[in-house]
Amino acid sequence: MIYFDNVSKIYSGNSVAVEDVSFTVEPQEFVSVVGQSGSGKSTLIKLLLAEERPSAGTVYFQSLDVHNLSRSEIPFVRRKIGTVFQDFRLLPQKTAYENVAFALEAAGKEDDEIASDVPHILDLVGLSDKMDFFPHELSGGQQQRVAIARALVNRPEVVIADEPTGNLDPLNTWEIIRLLGKINELGTTVILATHDKDIIDTIGKRVITLEDGKVVRDEKRGRYIL
């Protein structure tokens, strides 16, 4: 479903972010990408979302070369990928409801579909009573759940979470991880980038370990080893 083929990303100068990375993600898999800060986790995600272009190699999503798409085709790929970030990245001028609805509106969904889907998905993440709150009126954990709702509302085939728990306390962290596990059980592929040892050791699923931009380990039931 997702295939990184000998991908390298070298930023200006000779700062190497990712070097010669190859791996495949199968449908409905739960893959954790681990590594220290600067090991290239975020770069991999940016490459998949076509936010950055690789210096060498190819990134495939459902057999499409992501970087060979025109600028008008890229949004269609992004709508199939739900993304969750460490800093939540909600639209500050929009309420929780509007933030989630935005993803559907941008995808051109009909109004009645939006009106029924958004409350449903916010209910799923436990925020049905906070729909009309603006991001700054919500706690970190609640904001992240809005972000997850937004990532899920388009029924994506993959959810990518880049350090989703980096700004959260332990209780909220486990809430989010449980939510991601649930999403995966319902049939969505999940890619989780993190450097949290406890999380990885508890999940007990496939782990890809990055070090200095290279894949050093790829295990079916991995643990966090650095």
Binding site: L49, R71, S72, P75, R78, L90, L91, A107, N154
Partner: peptide, 9 residues
């Protein structure tokens, strides 16, 4: 953010 959520230009 809008771009990453899949909004067209």
């Amino acid at each position: 953010i809008m771009r990453l959520v899949g909004a067209s230009t």
